[in-house]
């Protein structure tokens, strides 16, 4: 059902290319490729270049992965090193 509207957007907020941020990008790409092909597109936002966005999207911790749709909004913080856990949380409210 949820797939009908095409791939959903995930936004990963980072602040500079720190080891934690790079690890998060790497982990997320892997998860999407291996476990969720075609279901999500990933956008990486570097808040160092645009700190205004941190305020707008209420980002405190870095890195933060935001899934705005479907509701409720989910935020996962950390370097996403535990793929199983990430999958569980991305699927909340998604699969029936």
């Amino acid at each position: 059902m949820a797939d009908a509207s095409g791939p959903k957007k995930l936004v990963l907020y980072i602040a500079g290319e720190t080891p934690k941020s790079l690890a998060a990008i790497r982990n997320l790409e892997k998860i999407c490729e291996v476990s969720l092909p075609g279901r999500y597109t990933v956008e990486v936002v570097d808040l160092k270049n645009n700190p205004q966005l941190a305020r707008e999207h209420n980002i405190v911790a870095i890195p933060t992965l935001v899934r705005e749709l479907p509701t409720p909004i989910r935020k996962i913080i950390g370097d996403l090193s535990d793929a199983e856990k990430v999958l569980v949380h991305l699927k909340v409210g998604d699969d029936q």
């Binding site: 907020y13 602040a15 500079g16 720190t18 934690k20 690890a23 998060a24 982990n27 808040l47 941190a54 980002i59 405190v60 911790a61 870095i62 890195p63 933060t64 989910r74 935020k75 996962i76 913080i77 950390g78 370097d79 996403l80 090193s81 535990d82 856990k85 990430v86 949380h89």
Partner: peptide, 11 residues
Amino acid sequence: LEEIGDFDLEG
């Protein structure tokens, strides 16, 4: 909010 792995409060 869910914590998975290492993070900081750079935001």
